[in-house]
Design a binder for these strands. Structure first.
Lengths: 246, 246
DNA sequence: GACTCCAAACTTGTCGTACAACTATGTAAC
DNA sequence: GTTACATAGTTGTACGACAAGTTTGGAGTC
């Protein structure tokens, strides 16, 4: 292994645990084409010395890649990048549900998808779409009034926006986000006082109504702005949560 | 297992190693409902004594399940069966009959994804990313000079942008677009004269270079604009194609 | 020279121990 | 009753050792 190869390994920043970091890095190297299909990976020893982690970690990271189908290993031979490392289907697997970083990355993806979708929805929504969005919004309001977090209802409302694009790909893609966006696991991390809960509910209502009215009235730019604001604030709140627990 | 049994399995090189066996066993227990969502798995020690394998094996098996999203682990607490062990996946299956409409819908989706990605890439790209994008751009230029359509190279360049976001979800999602975005099937519909081809090549080069320089120079807004323009014009061209063949 | 055989080196698979980091729980002190 | 802390239990990480599979190169034979 050359120095240049080593340099790639040294660039991982601190995060939840060593195994995930190493697995992410190796995954990135494969997906970026740095390691090509059929090519042999560095030996476990080489990865150990390059990254400074123990063989235990290296092996668990390789087990992760193997489970994802990115590599295959053969005893006495080594590990090899799979022939078709680019899967034709996309799915979000809740790797570390406690890892807020994961949620933030998904939120980044949602930002792109939903902003465009909101714009399209504002241009194309039918009366039926508007009614459906209104219903979901009512459900959400009701859930918040009853003191719940409304995560499920929030998700359903967002989905109704995607449906209104009249482009089924948007809705189908959004379905994959549900796996990680149901925040039951970290709900307990997020202990809000009654006052905070109330403020949170008011903010949610305000932001969602802004999105809804923009789409209903066919205001494309406003719809984009509104949903970007909403998702940005959600992300910011998750970041606070992470920093608070760190 | 007898030798005869092994003979049956020799066709696929699935090794009879302890890790796979244990992982399969645990997977079966989860999928059969023996271990219910949210329920805690036995401790690593318990699995060790119950199965007789070492902790190394247990941990690698658990790493496999975690990669598949079947369980989540938390230090000091234990491993738990995931709430939604059946991840939904997103894929694009090309439909030959209305393929151009199909492409237009996918382009709409790409619009959202890639605009956001270009913005993120402008903020986060590393020198390595810049080099990779430059290489892909050179490949594309070369393909166009040689009189090809450069569809493959175009796709590779776009992918390098997604990689530069440092958010692997973007790259993984983009891979699903490849199914329909390699336009071999309608290339023959698209007979350009030499002059048209030249104009097309010049346009492609101009638009791609605009995207590249914006990302390289860290200009977020310009990157978004450039890629939106590029995809809009691509979509317009596909629409012309559809109307011409209809 | 060409071939066979085998020993050595290398790599992954498995085992064992030890300690660090994190969590929950119960107990003592206030 | 509440807080602080000690403790036990669990996962995360490190290190060393040997087993099992694969390749390579050299010794020996024809």
């Amino acid at each position: 292994m050359t120095d240049k190869d080593n340099a790639v390994f040294n660039t991982f920043q601190q995060a939840p645990n060593l195994r995930s970091n190493l697995a992410d890095m190796l995954t990135a190297r494969i997906e970026s084409g740095d390691l090509k299909p059929g090519q042999r990976l560095p030996t476990e020893q080489a990865i150990m010395t390059a990254t400074g982690v123990s063989r235990t970690i290296v092996r668990e990271a390789l087990a992760t890649l193997r489970a994802k189908g990115l590599i295959t290993t053969r005893q006495g031979l080594g590990a090899f990048v799979s022939n078709d490392p680019t899967p034709r289907s996309f799915s979000i697997i809740p790797n570390d549900l406690q890892s807020i970083d994961e949620v933030l990355r998904v939120l980044e993806l949602r930002m792109g998808v939903e902003c465009e979708a909101a714009g399209l929805a504002a241009l194309r929504r039918t009366q039926e779409d508007i009614d459906r969005m209104q219903d979901r919004l009512d459900d959400l309001d009701k859930a918040l009034e009853e003191g719940g977090y409304g995560a499920q209802e929030d998700y359903a409302f967002h989905r109704s926006i995607l449906v209104a694009t009249q482009n089924s790909y948007y809705g189908r893609l959004f379905d994959t986000f549900g796996n990680i966006m149901v925040p039951r696991q970290w709900a307990r991390l997020d202990k809000m006082t009654a006052a905070e809960r109330k403020r949170h509910a008011a903010r949610m209502r305000r932001e969602h109504h802004a999105i809804f009215t923009a789409i209903r009235d066919g205001e494309e730019a406003a719809a984009r702005r509104a949903i970007r604001t909403h998702l940005s604030k959600s992300a910011a709140r998750f970041e606070e949560l992470r920093d608070a627990t760190a």
